[in-house]
């Protein structure tokens, strides 16, 4: 009797789980019927967190041009997003902050076509406003009294920092290696670190709460931003139009204003 009751419980759980999943089939499956008139629906874009400000602006532009279309933007670290796509999250467009994370998706055979580099980014030193420690060059970061924060080498911004260290022969002794670039920036904004290595776009997005110090060696570790339409995208046509907007003149201008370098 006991085992039967347990079996009943398991069956109940399966039903429960099935019931939870039951919400999804309610959304129509548009990809099966690519009607020309269908300029409606939801376009899901997964984009690297550093693109937040730019893609928010481009979302508005796209929705104005395509009334009836709702663009849903999901920002996170590129590798998290890549994992989501690989694990089956319904996605139309993926914009990553590194070639490596894009490769996760292309290797899984989940890209429709070849990714296009639509922007580039370089590192900059972020300091407190007014640069009280007088940091002028990359080599200044090796100063022993300076509290420097970088990204961990496992994430793109940290990989770029490591590349510059190698190229310049300057070894940094960071007080912390953060898991993402916004955390690195946060330690500088809070005043707990004297300097941080972040993207030039993070400094401009911080709007004056930190000061950026450019250094020529930054060009040795340019980060590419690839974009691609995801295979079996629910809104394949709209997805391509969104990619065209990003890679077109309007998108490029918005990206340039945010501090990104031109695409390739």
């Amino acid at each position: 009797m006991k085992t039967r009751a347990v079996a009943g419980g398991v069956a109940g759980l399966v039903l429960l789980l099935a019931g939870c999943g039951g919400g999804q089939p309610a959304t129509p499956a548009p990809s099966t019927a690519p009607s020309a008139a269908a300029e409606t629906g939801t376009l899901t874009v997964l984009a690297a967190a550093s693109l937040t400000e730019t893609f928010d602006a481009l979302e508005k532009r796209f929705e104005t041009d395509h009334p009836g279309v709702d663009v849903k933007l999901n920002y996170a670290g590129s590798s998290d997003l890549a994992q989501q796509i690989v694990n089956g999250a319904p996605t139309d467009v993926f914009a990553a902050a590194s070639d490596a994370t894009m490769k996760t998706v292309t290797d899984a055979g989940l890209a429709a076509g070849t990714p296009k580099i639509f922007a580039t980014n370089v590192l900059q030193i972020a300091t407190a406003p007014g640069n009280p420690k007088g940091i002028a060059a990359f080599a200044d970061l090796a100063e022993p009294d300076l509290k420097v924060v970088v990204c961990a080498p496992q994430v793109p911004c940290g990989a770029a920092a490591a590349k510059i260290e190698k190229a310049t022969g300057v070894t940094l002794h960071p007080v912390s290696e953060e898991a993402d670039v916004k955390s690195t920036l946060g330690k500088v904004t809070s005043g707990d670190a004297d300097a941080g290595l972040v993207y030039v776009t993070d400094v401009s997005a911080a709007k004056g709460s930190v000061q950026g110090v450019s250094f020529p060696e930054a060009d040795q570790a340019t980060t590419n931003y690839p974009i691609v339409v995801v295979k079996n995208a629910p809104q394949a046509q709209l997805a391509q139009q969104f990619v065209d907007l990003v890679t077109g003149p309007d998108g490029q201008q918005a990206l340039e204003e945010a501090g990104f370098g031109p695409g390739k």
């Binding site: 590798s79 960071p174 290696e177 898991a179």
Partner: peptide, 19 residues
């Protein structure tokens, strides 16, 4: 923060490694 041997505990390392 997160630095090996000083502040990077197991959960922080898990979070980083999964990248």
């Amino acid at each position: 923060g997160s630095l090996q041997g000083t502040t990077r505990t197991l959960p922080l390392l898990v979070y980083l490694e999964r990248e």
